[in-house]
Amino acid sequence: MLRRSIIGTFIFCFTSFLVSAHKYYTSITQVEYNVTTQSAEVIMNVFSDDLLLAISNQNKRVVKMTDKDFTTLTYHYLDSRFAIKDTKNHQLKNEYVGLEVNRDMVSIYFEIRSVRELDMVSIKQISLLETNKEQTNIVNLRSGKQKTSMVFNAGNPGMQTVKFDQ
Protein backbone atom coordinates (compact mmCIF):
# COMPACT_ATOMS: atom_id res chain seq x y z
CA MET A 1 0.00 0.00 0.00
CA LEU A 2 2.82 2.30 0.86
CA ARG A 3 4.40 1.76 -2.53
CA ARG A 4 1.22 2.74 -4.25
CA SER A 5 0.85 6.00 -2.42
CA ILE A 6 4.47 6.92 -3.03
CA ILE A 7 4.09 6.34 -6.72
CA GLY A 8 0.84 8.26 -6.66
CA THR A 9 2.58 11.23 -5.11
CA PHE A 10 5.36 11.15 -7.64
CA ILE A 11 2.97 11.15 -10.52
CA PHE A 12 1.61 14.38 -9.15
CA CYS A 13 5.04 15.83 -8.65
CA PHE A 14 6.57 15.34 -12.04
CA THR A 15 5.12 17.10 -14.97
CA SER A 16 6.49 16.06 -18.29
CA PHE A 17 8.63 18.84 -19.70
CA LEU A 18 8.52 17.40 -23.14
CA VAL A 19 8.10 19.84 -25.91
CA SER A 20 5.44 17.94 -27.72
CA ALA A 21 1.95 16.68 -27.60
CA HIS A 22 3.31 13.29 -26.69
CA LYS A 23 5.20 11.77 -23.89
CA TYR A 24 7.53 9.03 -25.00
CA TYR A 25 10.01 6.95 -23.15
CA THR A 26 13.33 6.28 -24.83
CA SER A 27 16.94 6.44 -23.77
CA ILE A 28 20.00 6.07 -25.96
CA THR A 29 23.29 4.79 -24.57
CA GLN A 30 26.47 4.94 -26.60
CA VAL A 31 29.18 2.45 -25.67
CA GLU A 32 32.42 2.96 -27.51
CA TYR A 33 35.77 1.30 -27.19
CA ASN A 34 38.72 3.70 -26.99
CA VAL A 35 41.89 1.89 -28.06
CA THR A 36 44.17 4.67 -26.86
CA THR A 37 42.93 4.71 -23.30
CA GLN A 38 41.98 1.02 -23.33
CA SER A 39 38.61 1.83 -21.90
CA ALA A 40 34.97 1.47 -22.77
CA GLU A 41 33.34 4.89 -22.85
CA VAL A 42 29.67 5.06 -21.99
CA ILE A 43 27.36 8.00 -22.58
CA MET A 44 23.76 7.58 -21.44
CA ASN A 45 21.13 10.02 -22.61
CA VAL A 46 17.94 9.94 -20.58
CA PHE A 47 15.02 12.30 -20.06
CA SER A 48 15.51 14.21 -16.85
CA ASP A 49 11.94 13.78 -15.62
CA ASP A 50 12.11 10.00 -16.10
CA LEU A 51 15.44 9.89 -14.30
CA LEU A 52 14.16 12.00 -11.40
CA LEU A 53 11.15 9.77 -11.02
CA ALA A 54 13.37 6.68 -10.98
CA ILE A 55 15.82 7.98 -8.39
CA SER A 56 12.98 9.34 -6.29
CA ASN A 57 11.41 5.89 -6.26
CA GLN A 58 14.72 4.26 -5.42
CA ASN A 59 15.38 6.62 -2.53
CA LYS A 60 11.78 6.95 -1.38
CA ARG A 61 11.86 10.73 -1.39
CA VAL A 62 11.34 13.44 -3.97
CA VAL A 63 14.70 14.12 -5.58
CA LYS A 64 15.25 17.32 -7.53
CA MET A 65 18.03 18.27 -9.88
CA THR A 66 19.01 21.09 -7.59
CA ASP A 67 19.59 18.69 -4.69
CA LYS A 68 23.19 18.43 -3.56
CA ASP A 69 23.17 14.65 -3.79
CA PHE A 70 21.49 14.53 -7.22
CA THR A 71 24.75 13.50 -8.90
CA THR A 72 25.55 10.82 -6.35
CA LEU A 73 22.05 9.40 -6.46
CA THR A 74 22.05 9.42 -10.25
CA TYR A 75 25.32 7.55 -10.36
CA HIS A 76 24.20 5.11 -7.70
CA TYR A 77 20.96 4.45 -9.56
CA LEU A 78 22.45 3.99 -13.00
CA ASP A 79 25.28 1.87 -11.65
CA SER A 80 22.64 -0.50 -10.33
CA ARG A 81 20.84 -0.66 -13.67
CA PHE A 82 23.62 -0.69 -16.25
CA ALA A 83 26.16 -3.47 -16.39
CA ILE A 84 28.90 -4.65 -18.71
CA LYS A 85 30.46 -8.08 -18.35
CA ASP A 86 33.62 -9.27 -20.05
CA THR A 87 34.23 -12.57 -21.83
CA LYS A 88 34.86 -14.31 -18.53
CA ASN A 89 31.52 -13.12 -17.23
CA HIS A 90 33.16 -10.70 -14.78
CA GLN A 91 31.18 -7.56 -14.14
CA LEU A 92 33.28 -4.52 -14.95
CA LYS A 93 33.34 -1.44 -12.80
CA ASN A 94 31.47 1.63 -14.03
CA GLU A 95 33.60 4.62 -13.18
CA TYR A 96 31.58 7.79 -12.99
CA VAL A 97 33.01 10.66 -15.03
CA GLY A 98 30.28 13.25 -14.80
CA LEU A 99 26.94 14.43 -16.09
CA GLU A 100 25.62 17.18 -18.24
CA VAL A 101 22.12 18.61 -18.46
CA ASN A 102 20.91 19.84 -21.80
CA ARG A 103 17.30 21.00 -21.82
CA ASP A 104 15.21 18.02 -20.77
CA MET A 105 17.96 15.48 -21.37
CA VAL A 106 20.65 14.36 -18.95
CA SER A 107 23.84 12.87 -20.38
CA ILE A 108 25.73 10.70 -17.94
CA TYR A 109 29.33 9.75 -18.67
CA PHE A 110 30.89 6.51 -17.47
CA GLU A 111 34.27 5.01 -18.15
CA ILE A 112 35.21 1.37 -17.78
CA ARG A 113 38.97 1.09 -17.54
CA SER A 114 41.46 -1.61 -18.41
CA VAL A 115 39.40 -3.19 -21.13
CA ARG A 116 41.74 -5.10 -23.44
CA GLU A 117 39.23 -5.46 -26.24
CA LEU A 118 35.52 -5.23 -26.80
CA ASP A 119 35.06 -8.14 -29.16
CA MET A 120 32.75 -10.12 -26.99
CA VAL A 121 30.75 -8.38 -24.35
CA SER A 122 27.53 -8.71 -22.39
CA ILE A 123 25.46 -5.64 -21.58
CA LYS A 124 22.38 -4.92 -19.53
CA GLN A 125 20.68 -1.53 -19.56
CA ILE A 126 17.47 -1.70 -17.52
CA SER A 127 17.39 1.92 -16.36
CA LEU A 128 13.89 3.39 -16.08
CA LEU A 129 12.18 0.14 -17.10
CA GLU A 130 10.52 0.03 -13.67
CA THR A 131 9.17 3.58 -13.92
CA ASN A 132 7.35 3.21 -17.20
CA LYS A 133 6.16 0.16 -19.03
CA GLU A 134 6.74 1.84 -22.39
CA GLN A 135 10.38 2.60 -21.62
CA THR A 136 12.79 1.45 -24.32
CA ASN A 137 16.55 1.63 -23.86
CA ILE A 138 18.71 1.51 -26.91
CA VAL A 139 22.39 0.71 -26.57
CA ASN A 140 24.62 1.48 -29.53
CA LEU A 141 27.85 -0.44 -29.19
CA ARG A 142 30.96 0.25 -31.18
CA SER A 143 34.37 -1.29 -31.25
CA GLY A 144 36.63 -0.13 -34.05
CA LYS A 145 34.61 -0.35 -37.23
CA GLN A 146 32.16 -2.85 -35.83
CA LYS A 147 28.81 -1.62 -34.62
CA THR A 148 25.64 -3.05 -33.25
CA SER A 149 22.56 -2.00 -31.29
CA MET A 150 20.72 -3.66 -28.47
CA VAL A 151 17.20 -2.96 -27.29
CA PHE A 152 16.05 -3.34 -23.70
CA ASN A 153 12.44 -3.00 -22.67
CA ALA A 154 9.94 -4.55 -20.32
CA GLY A 155 9.67 -7.64 -22.45
CA ASN A 156 13.41 -7.92 -22.93
CA PRO A 157 15.28 -6.88 -19.79
CA GLY A 158 17.97 -9.57 -19.64
CA MET A 159 21.71 -9.44 -20.30
CA GLN A 160 22.50 -9.44 -24.00
CA THR A 161 25.73 -10.70 -25.47
CA VAL A 162 27.39 -9.59 -28.65
CA LYS A 163 30.37 -11.12 -30.38
CA PHE A 164 32.08 -9.16 -33.08
CA ASP A 165 33.92 -10.96 -35.86
CA GLN A 166 37.63 -10.77 -35.40
Partner: peptide
Amino acid sequence: TETSSNNTVGKAMDFQAF
Protein backbone atom coordinates in the same frame (compact mmCIF):
# COMPACT_ATOMS: atom_id res chain seq x y z
CA THR B 1 -3.27 -3.32 -26.96
CA GLU B 2 -0.71 -2.07 -24.46
CA THR B 3 2.16 -4.52 -24.43
CA SER B 4 2.92 -5.59 -20.90
CA SER B 5 6.03 -5.75 -18.89
CA ASN B 6 6.84 -9.03 -17.18
CA ASN B 7 7.66 -9.92 -13.60
CA THR B 8 11.39 -9.60 -14.01
CA VAL B 9 11.16 -5.83 -13.95
CA GLY B 10 10.22 -5.79 -10.30
CA LYS B 11 8.46 -2.60 -9.34
CA ALA B 12 6.69 -2.17 -12.64
CA MET B 13 3.93 -4.42 -11.41
CA ASP B 14 3.05 -2.05 -8.61
CA PHE B 15 2.78 0.82 -11.00
CA GLN B 16 0.66 -1.12 -13.42
CA ALA B 17 -1.57 -2.44 -10.70
CA PHE B 18 -2.08 1.11 -9.54
